[in-house]
């Protein structure tokens, strides 16, 4: 199996304002993720799991250590390259969906395609296809306020998959959803992974963690446990 992500001794320190001193959010994490894997990062609040996800996705930079995705160093990229990397190589799903309220579901999915300069006809077709994939074929022209939480998160997943990234990063994707909708989301993420997209998900949701192939436990900024769900 191809190695997709290689993180070595990644550390991230924050200077807290107001005399808060230095906070060591991530204290030397090394992690390998294979192509097609489905990894859940779990741990108590403040253990550094969301910070790790941000570092992997190139929206934050490590204080030291290295992160490689498909052989590309994410930690040393220039800002413009990191932006391009986030647009084309990874997809982000957030706990609070963060859809553009003024745009319809279709337009929200079109947004990263437009940024990637995909022709209008092609991007509309791709956005329709993705919304159908997440089960929202009938809700194309609805705006976020006209959609339920679960539907909004589906649109967010469709948006994350728009440019066919090999890696999907999800931060508490079921955090704002009820149990039933959460279960649907877990099923959808399983389907996305089954179709070949590697997923790294940060979660407190035990059901979601159980659905992953591999679970990494973090505490105080370090990985304390890393095991495959099949018992390996």
């Amino acid at each position: 199996m191809t190695r997709l992500l290689v993180a070595r001794d990644v550390k991230r320190d924050y200077h807290m304002g107001g005399g808060g001193g230095l906070v060591h959010a991530v204290r030397g994490v090394s992690l390998d993720v294979d192509d097609g894997d489905y990894l859940a990062v779990v741990g108590p609040s403040g253990c550094g799991k969301s910070t790790l996800l941000n570092l992997i996705g190139g929206i934050d930079r490590p204080s030291s250590g290295s992160i490689e995705i498909s052989g590309e160093r994410v930690d040393t990229m220039r800002d413009a390259d990191a932006t391009r990397f986030r647009l084309l190589r990874v997809g982000f799903v957030f706990q609070r969906f963060y859809l553009m309220p003024a745009l319809t579901a279709l337009e929200n999915v079109e947004l990263p395609l437009a940024e990637a300069k995909v022709a209008r006809k092609e991007r509309v077709a791709r956005a329709r296809e993705l919304l159908a994939y997440v089960g929202l074929a009938a809700r194309l022209d609805h705006r976020p306020t006209q959609l339920s939480g679960g539907e909004q998160q589906r649109v967010a997943i469709a948006r994350a998959l728009a440019n066919r990234p090999r890696l999907l990063l999800a931060d508490e994707p079921t955090g704002e959803l009820d149990a039933h909708t959460g279960a649907e989301m877990i099923s959808l993420l399983g389907q996305v992974n089954g179709d070949g997209t590697t997923i790294v998900v940060v979660t407190h949701d035990e059901d979601l963690a159980r659905a992953a192939k591999r679970v990494v436990h973090m505490r105080d900024g370090v990985v304390v446990d890393d095991r495959r769900q099949d018992g390996s």
Partner: peptide, 13 residues
């Protein structure tokens, strides 16, 4: 901020 989201959606519609 929901009042604003609704307003935005109405305005955009």
């Amino acid at each position: 901020g929901r009042h604003e989201s609704r307003r935005t959606a109405r305005a955009a519609a």
